[in-house]
Design a protein around this nucleic acid. Sequence first.
RNA 1: GCGAGCGUGGUGGAAUUGGUAGACACGCCAGACUUAGGAUCUGGUGCUGCACAGCGUGGGGGUUCAAGUCCCUCCGUUCGCACCA
Length: 850
Amino acid sequence: MKYNFADFEEKWQKIWEENKIFRASSSSSLKKYYCLEMFPYPSGNIHMGHVRNYAIGDVISRHKMMCGFNVIHPIGWDAFGLPAENAAKQNNRHPAEWTRENIKKMRHQLKRMGLSYDWSREVATCLPEYYRWEQQLFIKMWEKGLAYKKRSGVNWCESCGTVLANEQVEDGKCWRCSSDVVQKELEQWFFKITEYAGELLDCTYTLLGWSENVLAMQRNWIGESSGAEITFDILGTDEKITVFSTRPDTLYGATFMLLAPEHPLADKLLEDSPQREEGLAFIKSITGESKEARMEDKQKKGFFTGRNCINPVTYEQMPIYIANYVLMDYGTGAVMAVPAHDERDFDFAKKYELPIVQVIQPKEDSPEDITEAYAGEGFLIQSDTFDGMSSKNARSAIVNLLEKQGSGKKSVTYRLRDWGVSRQRYWGTPVPFIYCGKCGAVPVPDKDLPVLLPENVKFDTHGNPLDSVQEFVNTVCPKCGDPARRETDTMDTFVESSWYFLRYCSPQYDKGMFDETEVNYWMPVDQYIGGVEHAVMHLLYARFFTKVLRDMGYINIDEPFDNLLTQGMVCKETQRCHTHGWLNPSEVKDGNCVHCQTPVIAGRTEKMSKSKKNVVDPDDLIKTFGADTLRLFSLFAAPPDKEIDWSESGVEGCYRFISRVFRLVTDHLDLLKSDIPEADVPQGEVSTEIFLYIHATVKKTTTDIERFQFNTAVAAIMEFVNSLYILQDKLTDTATKSAFKSALITLMRLCAPFTPHVAEELWSLASMHGFISCEGWPTYKEEYTLHNNITIAVQINGKIRAKITVPRNCSEQEVIEKSLADEKVVPYTKGRILTKKIYVHGKLVSIVVK
RNA sequence: GCGAGCGUGGUGGAAUUGGUAGACACGCCAGACUUAGGAUCUGGUGCUGCACAGCGUGGGGGUUCAAGUCCCUCCGUUCGCACCA
């Protein structure tokens, strides 16, 4: 029979669905297993990144199911977001309609991949049944002080017309549209993620199932620094300046003070200064710059406020400057400058001719003249009673002194800032607040939730479309009944994805975010799979939400995702022309651009993207090769965490392999349907060999799936098939046929998680009972995975000189005797003294001669 | 600058613990079957050399009977963060 996937792939997808074999229920005596892949944004089409992500998840899920776990494997849609709104503007379509249609199309595409999802748990975040619970949580967080509104400088993307979180700014550009991000002063809603900074950081050391690079990125992003807060009195006023420093040991060398231009004191100190105008102009020249331009300018610029403060340990006066390189949103926005031991302060001191006092010596006898800043550790000098102390010890000693004086204390600072969640866009969850002239910001009462997104909206205006929906904006205050104005900000879409994995546990629950019993049964997620691009944003937010919900008493876990697998990108060669930019294959002929006949620039391998014209469409591939081939290729081409280089011939190779499996099994349907039973024990030479292949392959495939080495798991099955092809001509007696029958049945089972359609079809063609998808995963016996004869390598002085074959149970003495007697070994040992003999059981003999 | 990772044939990649480097696949070569083959099957394929042999996991050094794997050092490369006090 010829392998023709089109005959049966869709048939099985339909049958699986009709028989509800992937429905999950918490009422099971089996051990639970939660397998989760990052849910897709309904852009309209699945791409190869999705295929890879979901193929990996599906193998894990199907394998666990066959291993007897109670598996939950849900899917849904991250359905709010800007693309829907942009599409609405361009095509005069409603975002809801656009999103609905995309979901429908992509749902069909996912189903066409044969994924083992429990579709009854499907959620779409744009539905009121979903987002009303988010609004409820928002209010609960507000009650606990974890959601708040403040005026602050925010990242503003003009092209998207909205605010962005810090995590969503990449190289000063919008993560979504790559246009420049500017700073803007706005009243915004924030989530107090900084309250959890310490725990979010500490727990990165307990997440043993996460890859080191993701944990490192999170740690980096949270950015903990420990040091001290030190307070300085300002001369001639009652004001004080508090700084944060990681190096209190250098306090005796602090010779001047720096304020961020945005620091409230900067303005205050200039109040009665004769240079007030000049100073304000200086501040404006810096704050007026974009964040990017400000970072770009490495030149130190400062302005003397005319005021001085007092060093709390030397009692020396320190001039207070406003400096361009001090950031308001880190630490306290003020820095004690220690020019001798900080490169930036050193440059500043040189430029403005400020005193440089060395207080740390690298070694006890190093020279005192300084030509550059020394930022390392060492021993204190010119530091009063601390002279001679190591900088490390001095850090705590000086903080102790400050604590006694009441001018400082130990402190920890994080780089992480609160999560700005306000978005000035339509297509998102409305922030459930009402502004009343009398009562201020009032939460929408629970009985009035959800605050529904109005349907009747015009998208032809600039700015937030919600602002112009009068019947939405105009409302009454829930407290006093006066006319009031409704909040028109919607939430960042990362809010929806911060708890969707909880909603999956009880997706239809209508009394709250989730049914606590269900969540506490299914959570945590045992295996999470997704792209590394979410290493910081989504994964950090979801961890934060989990901890918030835990502290509110709804769940009993600290971390949502036990194990995380970040899959690599799918890449393909690009081609480009000097004048016509990126070219797709049809625009290249004989290495020349078809538009201008000039040679194309040699292809580079890059992530598939429309703009680079190097995408391949999974739909086309499924039509040509079938879903099984596409799945198999994305698993076989590389280990899951590495990049895949797209290769058309690699896909064909996978297709060939599946054809081989199909032919091998269908050529022996008579045997499979016959009365000959499966073999329990090997009988005879060929049968023993077959047993060896079966058990060794099951062992290798099982362990490889469990450690996510799908590429080598597939390779093991390929070897198995190659062996069976050779063995199929040797089926002379019943015992052999019996063993071969076992081999074929095992093969089908091993293939089931990878290529479920062909496995199911073969299972049915062989008249086997039930669905292979629900069958047990094959087991192996260690004793059958070993050859009776083993090959031993013989090394003389570290070089392999011979290989000998011995029975498996051969004793050490016998092996060594046999190797010394080997004709290839004798010339190397003749007339020499044997000084050492090492036998590594079953592997090699190492002989040292002199 | 800080942090994390990677470096193996023509290509993608194998090699849990130090123990026969290059599994499996792509590509290429040869053969078989064919009117034909871009189908299928079989065999070959790290490099040098006629075989014996020698050389080979980014470079150099070290530990060891034995190193892709451990240690030191240098080089290259990818990713994240970065005027973070």
